[in-house]
Design a protein around this nucleic acid. Structure first.
Lengths: 188, 188
DNA sequence: CGCCGAGTTGAACTGAATCAAGAAACGTGG
DNA sequence: CCACGTTTCTTGATTCAGTTCAACTCGGCG
């Protein structure tokens, strides 16, 4: 569980007491590929940290097409951010695309820690800020970078994932069709 | 200043003591149209609440074109979110496009309140969540809605702004050229 | 073997950008 | 109040990145 704690400490350090409380609320999970951590309509109850494996966060558009909003691999957080933070029914599905080892904490437990420890509340705020900055970057990327550029950026930012994500999933995450991604990849 | 307080209370209520501290740190500003609240390269020091008027948050792309990331009118917050929250140099300019009456609080003061009052830290977290949800909506809108749809949504969401924002600014905010916006508008 | 999902490749189409030229609106000074 | 230049908006013609539709290839696997 150290990876998770280190990850959080880097964002906003907390003292031993809150840290211990946090650890005592965290659970370890081993889930198989294909496991749904959340389905559309449910309120997202868990924040996960990916120790190994990969997960995707997506929703189904009217026409039934799968739109991937986020992908998390080792060392990153996995949840439906908006549903988890606002505790409202999710439009997202969260699904593992590999067998994965996760650490998870429930919203209720986390909320309890936020209320009990001011410094945990602060950590929560900093985490939210981080997510927000990532989203801002994503907007920019989507709006002004070409399909090719987005693919190249992905290669740099997710060097370990290249051969672990299907073309279709990756294309969706990068905001293009698999046809386009296939062509873009061919040029390189 | 009541508008500002009510706005915040709705997001996450705080007790009288923190509220009074908050009010004592807030200042009222009357700025003319064209006033820069922030320029690129500076660290954003203030969070403003727009009592009257409108402001825009934008940056200059490599080619010198102005890209508007956010527009705030009466009853909304105005700042470079990422620079303010992370206290890093901004890529954004924040500029008023009308004479405006604002309430503002400095980052240092706000940070002080966050540290002193747990419930203010919580309010800060909730505000960040709100900003994040707005960004998420924006991504969706940019990726899947046509130029026409985005314009129509704007009309609904900013009913008071229609004739107060120049075509060029609005187009940029909606992620299209003014040429496209002009055409889109003509169809209606 | 033959089927099946995943990936590739080609051809036609499309929404919006770009380039370019006018038309309206606006302010400023004579 | 008009003439002038400047900025803002409209309209047309062309171009382009990426989508859609569709056919085809390839590597497994029952």
């Amino acid at each position: 569980m150290e990876e998770f704690i280190n990850y959080l400490q880097q964002i906003s350090p907390v003292g031993e007491e809150s840290r211990n409380s946090f650890v005592s609320k965290c659970k370890k999970f081993n889930f198989p590929k294909g496991k749904f951590l959340l389905k559309s309509g449910q309120i997202c109850q868990h924040l996960y940290f990916v120790r190994s494996g990969i997960g995707k966060v997506y929703y189904l558009k009217d026409d039934g097409k799968e739109i991937i909003d986020w992908i998390s691999d080792e060392g990153n957080l996995l949840t439906s951010v908006s549903s988890f933070l606002t505790q409202t029914p999710s439009v997202h599905y969260v699904k593992l695309i590999e067998d994965s080892e996760l650490f998870g904490i429930s919203y209720a437990d986390l909320e309890g820690l936020f209320s009990k420890y001011h410094e945990m509340e602060r950590l929560g705020r900093q985490l939210t800020i981080l997510a927000l900055v990532q989203l801002q970057n994503r907007i920019n990327s989507m709006q002004f970078e070409t399909a090719k550029k987005r693919y190249e950026n992905f290669l740099v930012q997710y060097p370990n994932c290249i051969n672990r994500i299907s073309l279709g999933d990756l294309a969706s995450f990068l905001g293009m069709t698999q046809v386009t991604l296939s062509r873009v990849r061919a040029l390189k």
